[in-house]
Design a protein around this nucleic acid. Sequence first.
RNA 1: GCCGGGAUGGCGAAAUUGGUAGACGCGCAGGUUUUAGGAACCUGUGCCGCAAGGCUUGGAGGUUCGAUUCCUCUUCCCGGCACCA
Length: 833
Amino acid sequence: MSFVYPHSEIEAKWQKAWSDKKADVTDIANAKKPFYNLMMFPYPSAEGLHVGNMYAFTGTDIYGRFKRLQGFDVFEPIGLDGFGIHSENYAFKVGKHPVEQAKRSEKNFYRQLSLIGCMYDWSRTVQTYDPGYYRWTQWLFVQMFRHGLAYRAKAEVNWCPSCKTVLADEQVIDGKCERCGNLVEKKALEQWFFRITAYAGKLLENINSLKWSEKVLIAQQNWIGKKEGINITYPVVDEKGTNIGEVVCFTTRPDTNYGATFVVIAPEHPFISILQRVIKKEKVDAIVQYTTQAKKVSPQDRIAQGRKKTGVDTGLLCINQLTGHKMPLYVSDFVVMGVGTGAVVGVPGHDLRDFEFAQSMGLPVLRVVVGSDGNKDPITKPEEVQEEDGVMINSGFLDGVPIKDAIEKMKDYLVQKGWAKRVTTYHLRDWLISRQRYWGPPIPMIHCATCEASGKGERSDTPGWYTVPDAQLPVALPYIEDYKPGDDGIAPLAKHKEFYETPCPGCGAAATRETDVSDTFLDSSWYFLRYPSLGSASENTAPFDPEVTKKWLPVTMYTGGAEHSVLHLMYSRFVTIVLKEWGYLDFEEPFPNFFAHGLVIKEGAKMSKSKGNVVNPDEYIKLYGTDALRLYLMFMGPFSEGGDFRDSGMEGMHRWVNRVWRMATSSLEVGTDTVASDILVKNLHKTIKKVGEDTARRHYNTAIAAMMEFTNCVADNNGTLPLPMLKDFLVILAPFAPYLTEELWERAGGTFSIHKQVWPKYDDKYLTEQSVPVVIQVNGKLRDTVYIDIESASNQEKVEAISLTSEKAQKFLGGEKPRKIIFVPGKLINYVV
RNA sequence: GCCGGGAUGGCGAAAUUGGUAGACGCGCAGGUUUUAGGAACCUGUGCCGCAAGGCUUGGAGGUUCGAUUCCUCUUCCCGGCACCA
């Protein structure tokens, strides 16, 4: 008799069988109850998977297998998000060409992914760097342009002067280059943007319809950052009172406007070019010097809180029409051009930053709000700045009004006077698509200087620009040797005439292709639409098949890391919303259900390459087997919370897998027609119920614990199970341990495959106990436990009678008559004395 | 600073509706078996105490017959955002 589960040979056997029999290939066309179970696909920024990835995939797969046993036609695909900066950087690091490295990574990722026992449909995979895929990523860009949602604008990119390269935001850590540690600068370049802000309202509204982990919804809400405020216009005059122009300030707190003492504009504010024409030369020089200086400061330093406030007085004055006061106009870098209107009205008594600025410039501070402390004294220290709730004073018609009402009253007043406009602003910014990099889909646009000169173009708002005609897609990424990011933010492809020289689709003159590639997040913003349509008749003529999509989308259950709470999930939602608007889809939300899994921790830190604490699953699979590793990963804690990876725990799970193996094989050997004890039958039904409920809510750890309790119970009762009970047990274990259970199922005479069986039903009649423990408490403290038959346990008189016979209880009752008796039927009785 | 999430034995954790705190596992201790190692199996294991008993879910209060669970304050840890006007 074999005592040790021979995992290697059994895993190899079933990998082959599942593959040969296409066990996990979903019948997309004929499925009756489609269930699209999707896990965020990995980006191969390393040689292979680590245990953190496997954790996420296993947790998703258990859910998929569970749903399949419950009768759904589950489609569970896998792919690689292999285009983009992550993968490109890894290629640089190992000194390989991104094209070569992609092949190597793909091979190794897919090798590992086929070992970890997930029910992937290997007939449908997506690699974002395949021309057959990125052709449609480019198509999506083209559609964005044609619908007026892609536009060009000057924008700042992160620039590392030491590496001479453009960096993505995520490569900038605390204002420094993640590779060399040099301070990152900003460089202004013409870039492509998607107008996601036009959908801010929709993206926010639709959140209410999503069944997502709460924290992810909150993150999305904050990221969209809707704010109701008001734009107040201040006329600007010089010291003689001559009108110069006006400055518009955004504020959410117009209630404090009686306390305004100055106005500040950002160094990049367009009003600076106006004022330069009208003020004295030395002032202009001071401003120019200041703004040039401000641009040199690293963006991180510039926005650092608590930094000493600096600025230049323009000598001009803004008129507060509310009070008639003239407020000096300053330029300061604590005001950021991208936020609000890039101009701020300073209320130093009720905003700490304004106060700091007023102090360093020697500007007056007025109090217009009295807080809960009732203090009406002048505000002279930072800690006295009153930003909390309160009531207005020194504010004319608002005196005595609470802040909340004062905000609305002031808005109404300013709007009615024609001095201001109510506005809604969002924290969400337009999506910067361009990357001056090599490893991505070339942006499918052509620029024609001839057309631009004559004001012609595909769209009147973007003269000189044409989309690449659909028939010419994809614009293939050429294999080049000088693929590293070049000097001055010029993309690698910009050095390749053979790539960019092309006739203008409009006039036929010599024109140039766009040489930037698109952001990785564009690749992953629509991949879920691609999977089910792979293999359909329209695979090569459309990004996704309308009929298939109608049947399989939106994604039934999406699972992924909370670190993608904002970007990936927001971009996918945006793309889906516009595809619906353009008539390609009939739903707006791609992921009505999203589950955020936790992170694997090792030695107190998130598992990551930089921390050097990554665990490669290969060695564990070799040593303990895939099933033991899957079980162990899921046993560490609830799937939503992640867990702490330890080798000792791994060994414990290995022991349990062997215990299951022995229990099952010996059950099969001794002949399994025997009748099981009542205890065992009851326990099995309890376990089926518990495992079903816990798996449904992804508390895999307690589901596994319940199965362990069951095997402990078997061990206490002869150590073997009758065949039907063994089979039921194997089915509920199958999602967690797919190889082990498939093998034992076969040995138990089951038909192929255990993973296509029906989840066993439990019978309530086995779940009720004959006698239940009833707790006897005195003053809320446990004093005794008695076992009473279920009927009597619900009867207060009977329970009282029985409990009073308890010596321990009597001791604490001390012969006194209880003042009060609390009775919870079937559970406890509590005497208050 | 703001927004989230946490804190329970030596460790990972459980407690689904306010009702037996610590399921399950690791580790540890003792034992059986074994030439030995390993494996397997059995017993014990929150803390203090010989015991009776007392104490115990980061800390301090509160509500309640009863609080890991609800409320207020507070400390620390993790994640995200951040001179957002």
